[in-house]
């Protein structure tokens, strides 16, 4: 059993935090993991992505092969589409619908969303609305983590603990709003209609 996840967003949107929470929960469950992330230049408002691989068996490559990812989880719709070719044909995409517009030629949002909808298994979330409901628009990354939580290989219940660890030093209010954002994401995803998985690729070691 394994799961390959591409986390996507723009520098500063907190995808490394999403990765941290999932990776910590995976380590606690005794799973193997590799997480390749982007530091440096592109963190200045550029496109950033992280490859997160979790498995019961040994993981070789730090990068997910194109066509192997089970999930693209994105805090931003344009960035969600940037990594589509990593997805396997029955892979899933969970994306925020909230654009981060810091370039002049940002495409038409509706076109972007319709492109996401063309992927059979998709979920589009208004992360800004839910984050505000949770108390801070900065918690959008945790909304998306919540939305993905039920579809992760790690146990859903194991995640909140590391959200606490992550935000502890920022004080109780921030911990609480991030936990709430996570829960709101969970609720939206639970209510959403998803095309079920077709049962995984055959013929690949570990499946």
């Amino acid at each position: 059993m394994k799961q390959d996840i591409i986390l996507a967003g723009v520098g500063g949107q907190g995808i490394i935090s999403i990765a941290y929470v999932i990776a910590s929960a995976a380590l606690e469950e005794g799973l193997e993991l590799k997480q390749a992330e982007v530091h440096g230049m592109s963190q200045r408002g550029g496109a950033v992505q992280s490859h997160l691989r979790i498995s019961r068996e040994r993981i070789w490559s730090d990068l997910i092969p194109r066509g192997e990812a089970d999930l693209v989880l994105s805090v931003e719709p344009l960035e969600a589409l940037r990594y589509i070719d990593y997805l396997r044909p029955d892979g899933m995409i969970i994306s925020s619908r909230v654009p981060f517009i810091n370039i002049r030629d940002y495409p038409d949002l509706e076109t972007l969303l319709s492109k996401i909808r063309e992927i059979p298994r998709h979920l589009i979330i208004d992360s800004e609305k839910l984050a505000k409901e949770a108390g801070s628009s900065r918690t959008q990354n945790m909304v998306l983590l919540g939305a993905a939580a039920g579809r992760l290989m790690v146990k859903e219940e194991g995640l909140p603990r590391y959200i606490k660890v992550l935000f502890e030093r920022h004080g109780e209010t921030i911990v609480a709003s991030n936990l709430k954002a996570f829960a709101l994401g969970q609720a939206v995803a639970a209510a959403a209609d998803f095309v079920p998985a077709s049962g995984g690729r055959t013929g690949r070691g570990g499946g």
């Binding site: 723009v10 520098g11 230049m41 592109s42 963190q43 200045r44 408002g45 550029g46 496109a47 344009l78 960035e79 589409l81 940037r82 810091n102 370039i103 030629d105 940002y106 495409p107 492109k115």
Partner: peptide
């Protein structure tokens, strides 16, 4: 479908 690039930029 061509995606717009998002190069790094000054804050």
């Amino acid at each position: 479908f061509k995606l717009a690039a998002r190069p790094p930029q000054l804050c």
